[in-house]
Design a protein around this nucleic acid. Structure first.
Length: 255
DNA sequence: AATGCTATCAACCGCACAGGT
DNA sequence: CACCTGTGCGGTTGATAGCAT
């Protein structure tokens, strides 16, 4: 038996809230509080709404201390910093921003801030990204890479960080190294290896597969990287390094 | 002016968890 | 200890405003 729904969907109103509904909810909560029970609140407040819907409306819109409108540069920094540290735990991130809700922060990140950061050449490496890469390795590979000793070992270098000079001068964040994803044991067994960021903040990638072909000019981009990891299911540096590197220059150090 | 596309954000959904019984 | 219920959370959807063609 499945869990009973939280409310009778046939008898509750859905969709955007009217000013009258907002007024009724605000008035009730200001006079009585939530009473610790959102489920029974709509009936007491004379609203034909689901309790969860009332809670969401109050927390995200009607609460008196809610701050609407644009995010400041300082808030951008806090969000970015916390995202890199804890990932998409929006409620935790929002708790560090006075008057902001998790929904607000989430929407802002997804629609504006991530693009702003990407456009500036920054990389975003969150714990969530690391778990994605780990999960990917746990999927069975259709066919393992060749294990015979390679004739040559191409070494690819991914510039995980662009030098500050290439950034938009208005970009507020400093560049700092981040730890590489935790790669599982299966990865080492394939003959591939990933080196930690070096002094110049780049990441080196070594591979033993002779199927890898790169020209020796600077600037090999994603379309060429698509041949990197067919057996592992990776089609790009973006996927390999956690799904967030979408810009940068990839250089072949071997000719 | 009409149409299509994109960005934004409010709202919903389903799941996990905590606390009560 | 198992079950039930309410709450909180993150992911996703859908409406629509604004922009481009």
């Amino acid at each position: 038996m499945g869990r009973a729904p939280c409310c009778d969907k046939a008898n509750v109103k859905r969709g955007p809230w009217s000013p009258e509904e907002d007024a009724a909810l605000r008035s009730y909560v200001e006079r009585h509080g939530t009473g610790g029970n959102w489920i029974s609140l709509p009936q007491k407040a004379g609203l034909k709404r689901c309790g969860k819907s009332c809670r969401l409306r109050w927390l995200n819109y009607l609460r008196p201390d809610i701050k609407h409108g644009g995010f400041t540069e300082e808030e951008d920094k806090i969000i970015f910093s916390l995202y890199k540290t804890i990932g998409s735990r929006w409620s935790v991130i929002a708790s560090h921003l006075a008057g902001r809700t998790d929904n607000d922060v989430k929407n802002y990140w997804n629609t504006k801030l991530m693009k702003k950061i990407m456009a500036a050449g920054e990389t975003i490496n969150s714990p969530a990204a690391n778990s994605q890469i780990t999960n990917k390795f746990h999927h069975p590979s259709p066919s393992p890479p060749a294990t015979s000793p390679p004739d040559q070992i191409p070494v690819m270098k991914a510039e995980a960080f662009l030098p500050p000079a290439t950034l938009d001068s208005n970009f507020p964040y400093s560049l700092e190294p981040y730890p590489l994803p935790q790669l599982p044991a299966e990865f080492a067994a394939t003959g591939y290896s990933l080196s930690p960021p070096s002094d110049d903040l780049s990441v080196s990638f070594s591979a033993s597969s002779s199927s890898i072909t790169m020209d020796d000019s600077e600037g090999a981009y994603f379309n060429q990287a698509a041949a990197f990891f067919p057996d592992l299911g990776f089609s790009s540096w973006t996927e390999l390094l956690g799904g967030f590197i979408t810009s940068g220059v990839y250089q072949n150090l071997y000719s």
